[in-house]
């Protein structure tokens, strides 16, 4: 589902040379969104690149984990980049940007402080769009096996014989 790493290896200079706009932490190009450090990039299938960048920022603001790189959030919301969901998603993101403009910002991505973006999210918290994105992230973000070790979670242990000989009672600070 994800082509997050397709452009990995592209230098930052190459990336910036192909971008048409920068929004927040992102490089937004013709048909793609990338991290400013060029660590990841994703091609757009259906959504506008600007919309995807907004969605990624929204995802991070809903479930902010400073030790998680952007690419996990990209993977978590990439499912919205399909023709079936475009109209609903673009409409939801327009509502978000309208709310930002109502507070005097150019767009959601133009807001510098997380707390100011969160204020905007609180305004639309009860909307179906917000709840859909938030609910989707619960599995979309936290059910990525790649993020589990970043929280210390070890996943299954049956294949290693459980923890009977591997520290089920190894707590040493009590």
């Amino acid at each position: 589902m994800t082509d997050v790493k397709d452009r990995k290896g592209m230098t930052r200079r190459e990336l910036l040379s192909r971008s048409v706009a920068a929004g927040g932490a992102f490089v937004i190009g013709a048909g793609f969104v990338a991290g400013k450090d060029a660590a990841w990039a994703t091609e757009m299938n259906a959504l506008k690149p600007q919309s995807m960048a907004t969605l990624i920022q929204m995802a991070r603001d809903i479930y902010p984990h400073d030790h998680l790189a952007d690419e996990y959030y990209v993977i978590a919301v990439k499912g919205y980049d399909v023709p079936d969901m475009v109209d609903e998603t673009e409409a939801g993101l327009r509502m978000l940007d309208d709310a930002a403009r109502g507070k005097g910002y150019g767009s959601y991505l133009d807001i510098g402080w997380e707390r100011d973006r969160v204020d905007i999210l609180r305004q639309i918290e009860d909307s179906a769009f917000f709840q859909k994105v938030r609910g989707g992230l619960v599995t979309g973000l936290y059910n990525q096996k790649a993020v589990w070790p970043l929280f210390g979670y070890e996943g299954e242990s049956f294949s290693q014989g459980g923890y009977i000989d591997r520290g089920f009672n190894d707590i040493n600070w009590l």
Partner: peptide, 9 residues
């Protein structure tokens, strides 16, 4: 059946 292997799940 075997004894618990402290596997979780």
């Amino acid at each position: 059946r075997p004894a618990c292997q402290q596997t979780g799940f």
